[in-house]
């Protein structure tokens, strides 16, 4: 078995240039987008580097389980998968990088092998090995995609919940779009941090831009208001549209002693009154004269 692997490594060493050329040809055929997104120099460099590491590892220990020997190969595959995931390759196109090595490699093995038995052994050993490496690239690919998605989710959350100061001590949190529990958590934290930062006594949560309110969202709102109260700030909910008022009553949600106002303007008037301010018309001219 070990002898077999060394033989394969020798075959790769002798025919490296040919194998490389055919392999890259195969990669291009099976991954149509490859030529567009990635330069052939990159493909050549990655492929050549993989072949070197692969045959070096084969000489050491042919079982892909050995972490110390195959660690470098895996690291290399990881960086290939990651860069391809970011460049927009599909998972199968990424896995093909490894799988398409089979044909050129097996062809050389067939030319060089002395008996049918040794050929069959070598082909079987290489198939298992390359399959496991190919699957590994797919796995890493999915993992890095997942990380990209999580990161974007987080960025979206941070962007979508601005807290603005309307007047000294009065904050507004205009909510727009659907509230899921992840987003509501971030809304809650932003608002409470804002209360501390601005030393605000009153915060207006405006839900004019929220399409639907279900039990969960209503509960989250109530929790936010309860947390603000524990910190010493009062909340007003504004912009409850008739349909949403109906849903809230229909769901049997008890808003308790939460102050609600129809519009942000009404809420602002109330908030100003609570901090001892008011809005009045200017007494003298318009300032144009």
């Amino acid at each position: 078995m070990n002898k077999n692997a060394t033989d394969v490594a020798n075959v790769i060493a002798r025919h490296k240039a040919d194998i490389l050329k055919e392999w890259i040809q195969r990669q291009k055929e099976s991954a149509s987008s490859l030529s567009g997104i990635m330069s052939s120099e990159d493909a050549l460099e990655q492929s050549s580097q993989f072949l070197d590491l692969f045959s070096a590892a084969l000489n050491e220990d042919p079982s892909a389980e050995n972490d110390t020997v195959w660690g470098e190969v895996r690291t290399m595959l990881e960086s290939v998968s990651r860069s391809r995931a970011l460049q927009g390759f599909s998972p199968s196109e990424t896995a093909t990088f490894v799988f398409s090595l089979k044909q050129p490699l097996f062809q050389r093995l067939r030319q060089e092998s002395k008996s049918a038995d040794t050929l069959a052994d070598a082909v079987w050993a290489m198939t298992t090995l390359l399959d496991s490496l190919g699957l590994y690239t797919a796995e890493v690919f999915l993992r890095s995609r997942e990380q990209v998605i999580l990161q974007q989710q987080q960025e979206l959350l941070d962007l979508s919940t601005p807290v603005v100061e309307l007047y000294r001590g009065v904050l507004a949190l205009p909510l727009i779009g659907t509230l899921d529990s992840e987003r509501t958590h971030s809304v809650m934290e932003n608002l409470l941090e804002g209360i501390v930062h601005h030393e605000a006594a009153i915060a207006i949560i405006d839900i004019t831009g929220v399409p639907t309110v279900d039990t969960l969202v209503a509960q989250h709102l109530i929790k936010t208001i309860a947390a603000a109260r524990l910190m010493g700030a009062e909340c007003i909910i504004s912009g409850i549209r008739p349909q949403i008022a109906q849903t809230i009553v229909h769901l049997g949600v008890d808003l308790g002693d939460v102050t609600t106002k129809a519009s942000l303007a009404e809420a602002l008037k109330l908030a100003l009154a609570k901090v001892g301010r008011g809005i009045a018309p200017l007494k003298t001219g318009t300032g144009l004269s």
């Binding site: 809650m188 934290e189 409470l192 941090e193 209360i195 501390v196 929790k223 309860a226 947390a227 603000a228 109260r229 524990l230 910190m231 010493g232």
Partner: peptide, 18 residues
Amino acid sequence: LVGMRPAVAITMVELGLT
């Protein structure tokens, strides 16, 4: 009661202590 931190307030509400 004064000066409760936001994280403490959120945790207390989640815990059911209002």
